[in-house]
Design a protein around this nucleic acid. Structure first.
Lengths: 189, 189
DNA sequence: AGTATAGGTGAACGATGGTTCACTCGTCAA
DNA sequence: TTGACGAGTGAACCATCGTTCACCTATACT
């Protein structure tokens, strides 16, 4: 069994149970009949930097699980070199979500934001706690309905601008309630 | 202290140490002087569905940490109603990443895929293990350089198509090595 | 008034945790 | 052939774990 397979089993377990296995469980996981075998294996993985162990011997994953390798740039235009080197790793959750309680996912219908690269079927991450600045893409309740648009503030005047020439800007008549600011857009193929 | 603050402290701890606190640690966390106080608090949170407890009393977060609430649709075009109801929750990692070992993040430079809604500065998630099908967006090594394009297969012929009228299709002369398939696009504001 | 009841204290319990020690069994190099 | 070494076994160790019990407030409700 390779070293990747070793840590893979731990990652599997951690993903399933959201905690590290005890030594008794590691025994079952690898078919050992001695706790000490598990103990030695763990120490190796600690040295390899895959697992962390605190002073009291409790285990925790060492960032590796849940983190995704980040390579360099890819040029969409002309072919260039991508360093085949891993620059660092990144946890998607930590990267995209600052405050979990005030964050929501919304699926997008329609094409009014197409020029901003937001297409029909995309998912947006919206944060309710972030203050809306001029130029932000916001989720807003305007005159009784909900919409997603660019926010344009000019003095005390507020407009909601689409990113599609076929649609007109919205100037709120009665109520404008900005519910959330779009912090990210995700498209899944 | 509200119930959210209770679970918030657990979420904080779990995020920091990637494991649930022991009862002794919960005591410190909340300033209790008795383990039993922690014990009773945990049981409440188990009943509230925030924390899971297995047969041997070990704790694990009950999906709530790390999961983000999913609301309904947002109409980009015209204002519509968004049900203010949480449909379900979703874990970004599980949703976007199928096999962690073969997944990479790449930052996009250039505008050759702009009509596919992939803009300069976006981040793409690429999977090395997924087979590349006709119409997929792929990361490919062609004639010594790297690029990201649509893959077009017609019989035995292979082309790389940009999503921008200003760029021409790439027909590989010597080598074409499809390294990864783009599974998601992320744009962060 | 009394009296439930939620929330905390403090001590004790057995079970399980991680750890250590002595030993065995192959494998590989000298 | 010998010896060193990595890897697994099996038993024992104590600290810590989760749990339970009896007891002690407060606060709110009849």
């Amino acid at each position: 069994m390779t070293k990747d397979n070793y840590s893979g089993k731990f990652a599997e377990f951690y993903k399933k149970y959201k905690r590290m296995p005890s030594y008794a469980e590691i025994m079952e996981l690898f078919g050992y009949r001695s706790k000490n075998a598990a103990f030695k294996l763990v120490n190796k993985l600690v040295e390899a930097g895959v697992i962390n162990k605190d002073k009291q011997g409790r285990l925790s994953p060492a960032n590796i699980f849940g983190e995704i390798k980040v390579l360099g740039y890819i040029e969409a235009g002309f072919p260039t070199l991508v360093e085949e080197e891993v620059l660092h790793t990144r946890n998607l959750d930590d990267w995209l979500v600052t405050s979990r309680d005030s964050t929501y996912l919304l699926q997008v219908r329609g094409d009014s934001m197409i020029e901003a690269g937001i297409m029909n079927g995309d998912t947006v991450i919206a944060d309710r706690s972030r203050p809306a600045k001029n130029g932000d893409i916001v989720i807003a309740e305007v005159d009784g309905g909900w919409t997603m648009k660019y926010l344009k503030k000019t003095g005390s005047k507020v407009e909601l601008l689409p990113a599609n020439k076929n649609y007109k800007p919205i100037i709120p008549r009665h109520d404008l309630n900005i519910a959330a600011v779009v912090t990210s857009v995700i498209r899944k193929y």
